[in-house]
Design a binder for these strands. Structure first.
Length: 223
DNA sequence: AGCCGGATGCGCT
DNA sequence: GCGCATCCGGCTG
Protein backbone atom coordinates (compact mmCIF):
# COMPACT_ATOMS: atom_id res chain seq x y z
CA UNK A 1 0.00 0.00 0.00
CA UNK A 2 1.14 3.52 -0.80
CA UNK A 3 -0.08 6.25 1.54
CA UNK A 4 -1.64 9.31 -0.07
CA UNK A 5 0.97 11.65 1.37
CA UNK A 6 3.68 9.56 -0.34
CA UNK A 7 2.08 9.98 -3.75
CA UNK A 8 3.30 13.50 -4.51
CA UNK A 9 5.48 13.75 -7.65
CA UNK A 10 9.13 14.52 -6.97
CA UNK A 11 9.74 18.17 -7.95
CA UNK A 12 12.18 18.93 -10.74
CA UNK A 13 14.57 20.37 -8.13
CA UNK A 14 15.03 16.81 -6.88
CA UNK A 15 16.76 15.89 -10.14
CA UNK A 16 18.49 19.26 -10.46
CA UNK A 17 21.40 18.05 -8.29
CA UNK A 18 24.65 16.11 -8.83
CA UNK A 19 23.91 12.58 -10.01
CA UNK A 20 25.78 11.03 -7.07
CA UNK A 21 23.34 12.74 -4.70
CA UNK A 22 20.25 11.87 -6.70
CA UNK A 23 21.00 8.18 -7.31
CA UNK A 24 20.89 6.88 -3.70
CA UNK A 25 18.04 9.27 -2.93
CA UNK A 26 15.90 7.49 -5.56
CA UNK A 27 15.89 4.23 -3.56
CA UNK A 28 12.47 3.67 -2.03
CA UNK A 29 10.75 6.13 -4.39
CA UNK A 30 7.75 5.07 -6.46
CA UNK A 31 7.84 4.80 -10.24
CA UNK A 32 4.41 4.90 -11.87
CA UNK A 33 3.72 3.75 -15.41
CA UNK A 34 0.30 4.77 -16.69
CA UNK A 35 -1.20 3.26 -19.84
CA UNK A 36 -4.73 2.62 -21.08
CA UNK A 37 -4.68 -0.45 -18.83
CA UNK A 38 -4.11 -0.61 -15.09
CA UNK A 39 -1.14 1.45 -13.94
CA UNK A 40 1.93 -0.36 -12.63
CA UNK A 41 3.64 1.10 -9.57
CA UNK A 42 6.99 -0.08 -8.28
CA UNK A 43 9.34 0.78 -5.46
CA UNK A 44 12.88 1.40 -6.67
CA UNK A 45 15.42 -0.94 -5.05
CA UNK A 46 18.52 -0.69 -7.28
CA UNK A 47 20.03 2.10 -9.42
CA UNK A 48 23.31 3.12 -11.05
CA UNK A 49 24.79 6.59 -11.57
CA UNK A 50 26.29 7.61 -14.93
CA UNK A 51 28.30 10.82 -14.89
CA UNK A 52 28.18 11.91 -18.53
CA UNK A 53 31.27 13.51 -20.08
CA UNK A 54 33.42 12.55 -17.07
CA UNK A 55 32.46 8.88 -17.12
CA UNK A 56 33.85 6.29 -19.57
CA UNK A 57 30.89 4.06 -18.70
CA UNK A 58 28.34 6.63 -19.84
CA UNK A 59 26.71 6.85 -23.25
CA UNK A 60 27.49 10.59 -23.11
CA UNK A 61 31.24 10.14 -22.56
CA UNK A 62 32.11 10.89 -26.19
CA UNK A 63 29.77 13.84 -26.47
CA UNK A 64 26.32 14.52 -27.74
CA UNK A 65 24.77 12.36 -30.45
CA UNK A 66 21.24 11.87 -31.70
CA UNK A 67 20.77 8.88 -29.40
CA UNK A 68 21.98 10.45 -26.14
CA UNK A 69 20.64 13.98 -26.76
CA UNK A 70 18.06 13.69 -23.95
CA UNK A 71 20.89 13.23 -21.42
CA UNK A 72 22.11 16.72 -22.30
CA UNK A 73 18.67 18.23 -21.80
CA UNK A 74 16.84 19.41 -18.67
CA UNK A 75 16.69 17.14 -15.57
CA UNK A 76 13.63 15.15 -14.61
CA UNK A 77 13.20 13.54 -18.03
CA UNK A 78 13.42 9.90 -19.13
CA UNK A 79 16.34 8.69 -21.25
CA UNK A 80 15.29 5.37 -22.81
CA UNK A 81 17.69 3.40 -24.99
CA UNK A 82 17.49 0.14 -26.91
CA UNK A 83 20.22 -2.46 -26.46
CA UNK A 84 21.28 -5.99 -27.42
CA UNK A 85 18.77 -5.95 -30.23
CA UNK A 86 15.77 -6.57 -27.99
CA UNK A 87 15.80 -4.71 -24.69
CA UNK A 88 15.07 -1.25 -23.38
CA UNK A 89 16.59 0.47 -20.37
CA UNK A 90 15.27 3.51 -18.49
CA UNK A 91 17.36 6.34 -17.05
CA UNK A 92 16.38 9.57 -15.31
CA UNK A 93 18.29 12.68 -16.36
CA UNK A 94 19.94 14.63 -13.52
CA UNK A 95 22.09 17.71 -12.96
CA UNK A 96 21.55 20.88 -14.91
CA UNK A 97 20.76 21.28 -18.56
CA UNK A 98 23.94 20.80 -20.58
CA UNK A 99 25.46 18.37 -18.04
CA UNK A 100 24.72 14.88 -19.33
CA UNK A 101 24.29 12.73 -16.23
CA UNK A 102 21.65 10.12 -15.56
CA UNK A 103 20.54 7.33 -13.24
CA UNK A 104 19.85 3.86 -14.67
CA UNK A 105 16.86 2.28 -12.94
CA UNK A 106 17.99 -1.33 -12.47
CA UNK A 107 15.36 -3.01 -10.29
CA UNK A 108 12.23 -2.54 -8.25
CA UNK A 109 9.45 -4.21 -6.32
CA UNK A 110 6.11 -4.20 -8.11
CA UNK A 111 3.51 -2.86 -5.67
CA UNK A 112 0.40 -2.50 -7.82
CA UNK A 113 -0.60 -3.58 -11.31
CA UNK A 114 0.94 -7.01 -10.80
CA UNK A 115 -1.39 -8.54 -13.40
CA UNK A 116 -0.19 -6.07 -16.01
CA UNK A 117 3.45 -6.63 -15.13
CA UNK A 118 3.06 -10.39 -15.19
CA UNK A 119 1.37 -10.24 -18.58
CA UNK A 120 4.40 -8.41 -19.98
CA UNK A 121 6.88 -10.69 -18.17
CA UNK A 122 5.35 -14.17 -18.52
CA UNK A 123 8.68 -15.88 -17.84
CA UNK A 124 9.15 -14.37 -14.40
CA UNK A 125 9.10 -17.26 -11.94
CA UNK A 126 7.98 -15.15 -8.99
CA UNK A 127 7.01 -11.58 -8.17
CA UNK A 128 10.51 -10.53 -7.16
CA UNK A 129 11.73 -11.38 -10.69
CA UNK A 130 9.21 -9.10 -12.42
CA UNK A 131 11.58 -6.11 -12.40
CA UNK A 132 14.90 -7.67 -11.32
CA UNK A 133 17.31 -6.14 -13.83
CA UNK A 134 17.08 -2.98 -15.97
CA UNK A 135 15.60 -4.59 -19.10
CA UNK A 136 13.13 -6.59 -17.01
CA UNK A 137 12.07 -3.39 -15.24
CA UNK A 138 11.46 -1.65 -18.55
CA UNK A 139 9.59 -4.67 -19.91
CA UNK A 140 7.38 -5.03 -16.83
CA UNK A 141 6.40 -1.37 -17.16
CA UNK A 142 5.86 -1.44 -20.92
CA UNK A 143 8.60 1.11 -21.57
CA UNK A 144 10.17 1.62 -24.98
CA UNK A 145 11.78 4.40 -27.00
CA UNK A 146 8.43 6.14 -27.45
CA UNK A 147 8.94 7.37 -23.87
CA UNK A 148 12.41 8.77 -24.57
CA UNK A 149 12.40 12.40 -23.42
CA UNK A 150 9.23 12.10 -21.31
CA UNK A 151 8.91 14.54 -18.40
CA UNK A 152 8.66 12.45 -15.22
CA UNK A 153 7.86 15.47 -13.02
CA UNK A 154 4.50 16.20 -14.62
CA UNK A 155 1.71 17.07 -12.21
CA UNK A 156 -0.89 15.33 -14.40
CA UNK A 157 -1.88 12.02 -12.76
CA UNK A 158 -2.47 10.64 -16.26
CA UNK A 159 1.09 11.30 -17.41
CA UNK A 160 2.70 8.13 -18.84
CA UNK A 161 5.64 8.04 -16.43
CA UNK A 162 6.02 9.68 -13.03
CA UNK A 163 8.22 9.39 -9.94
CA UNK A 164 6.49 9.84 -6.57
CA UNK A 165 7.94 10.68 -3.16
CA UNK A 166 7.31 7.25 -1.61
CA UNK A 167 9.43 6.42 1.42
CA UNK A 168 13.13 7.08 0.84
CA UNK A 169 15.35 4.21 1.99
CA UNK A 170 17.20 5.05 5.22
CA UNK A 171 20.95 5.51 4.74
CA UNK A 172 21.82 2.50 6.87
CA UNK A 173 19.91 0.19 4.49
CA UNK A 174 21.73 1.46 1.38
CA UNK A 175 24.64 -0.52 -0.08
CA UNK A 176 27.07 0.56 -2.80
CA UNK A 177 29.35 -1.32 -5.20
CA UNK A 178 30.74 -1.32 -8.74
CA UNK A 179 28.31 -1.01 -11.62
CA UNK A 180 27.05 -4.19 -13.24
CA UNK A 181 28.49 -5.10 -16.64
CA UNK A 182 30.62 -1.94 -16.90
CA UNK A 183 34.23 -2.51 -17.92
CA UNK A 184 37.39 -0.50 -18.58
CA UNK A 185 38.05 2.76 -16.75
CA UNK A 186 34.39 3.00 -15.73
CA UNK A 187 34.52 -0.20 -13.67
CA UNK A 188 36.16 1.09 -10.51
CA UNK A 189 33.68 3.65 -9.17
CA UNK A 190 31.15 2.26 -6.65
CA UNK A 191 28.25 3.96 -8.37
CA UNK A 192 25.71 1.16 -8.02
CA UNK A 193 23.27 1.63 -5.13
CA UNK A 194 20.77 -0.86 -3.76
CA UNK A 195 18.62 -1.61 -0.73
CA UNK A 196 20.23 -4.27 1.48
CA UNK A 197 18.64 -7.73 1.40
CA UNK A 198 15.83 -6.76 -0.95
CA UNK A 199 14.77 -9.81 -3.00
CA UNK A 200 14.16 -7.73 -6.14
CA UNK A 201 17.80 -6.56 -6.43
CA UNK A 202 19.59 -8.09 -9.43
CA UNK A 203 22.72 -10.24 -9.02
CA UNK A 204 26.04 -8.51 -9.68
CA UNK A 205 27.78 -9.57 -12.87
CA UNK A 206 31.29 -8.43 -13.75
CA UNK A 207 31.99 -7.12 -17.23
CA UNK A 208 32.62 -9.99 -19.68
CA UNK A 209 34.95 -9.02 -22.53
CA UNK A 210 33.68 -10.94 -25.57
CA UNK A 211 36.44 -13.15 -26.88
CA UNK A 212 37.10 -12.71 -30.55
CA UNK A 213 36.65 -15.52 -33.04
CA UNK A 214 40.41 -15.79 -33.60
CA UNK A 215 40.92 -16.46 -29.89
CA UNK A 216 38.15 -19.05 -29.90
CA UNK A 217 39.62 -20.84 -32.92
CA UNK A 218 43.07 -20.90 -31.33
CA UNK A 219 41.58 -22.40 -28.17
CA UNK A 220 40.12 -25.43 -29.98
CA UNK A 221 43.18 -26.75 -31.78
CA UNK A 222 41.97 -30.35 -31.99
CA UNK A 223 39.72 -30.95 -35.00
C1' DA B 1 24.02 -22.39 -7.97
C1' DG B 2 27.03 -20.90 -11.33
C1' DC B 3 28.97 -20.47 -16.04
C1' DC B 4 28.46 -20.06 -21.01
C1' DG B 5 26.60 -19.07 -25.58
C1' DG B 6 22.93 -17.45 -28.58
C1' DA B 7 19.44 -14.13 -29.72
C1' DT B 8 19.04 -9.74 -32.25
C1' DG B 9 19.27 -4.48 -33.94
C1' DC B 10 21.67 -0.50 -34.07
C1' DG B 11 25.06 3.22 -32.73
C1' DC B 12 29.42 4.46 -33.30
C1' DT B 13 34.57 3.90 -35.04
C1' DG C 1 32.38 -4.36 -38.51
C1' DC C 2 32.42 -4.53 -33.39
C1' DG C 3 30.45 -4.35 -29.20
C1' DC C 4 26.82 -3.29 -26.31
C1' DA C 5 24.51 -0.12 -18.83
C1' DT C 6 20.91 -7.81 -21.05
C1' DC C 7 18.19 -12.02 -20.58
C1' DC C 8 17.31 -16.81 -20.94
C1' DG C 9 18.01 -21.68 -21.58
C1' DG C 10 20.98 -25.41 -21.21
C1' DC C 11 24.77 -27.35 -19.37
C1' DT C 12 27.99 -28.79 -15.38
C1' DG C 13 29.06 -29.81 -10.73
Amino acid sequence: MIADHDRKPLPRAFFHRPVLEVAPDLLGRILVRTTEDDPVELRLTEVEAYAGRLDPGSHAYRGRTERNAVMFGPPGHAYVYFTYGMWHCLNLVCDEEGTASGVLLRAGEVLTGREQARGRRPKARNDSELAKGPARLATALGIDRVLNGTDVCADDPGAPLRVLTGTPAPDHRIRTGPRTGVGGAGATQPWRYWIADDPSVSPYRAHQPRRRRAALDAGSSDV
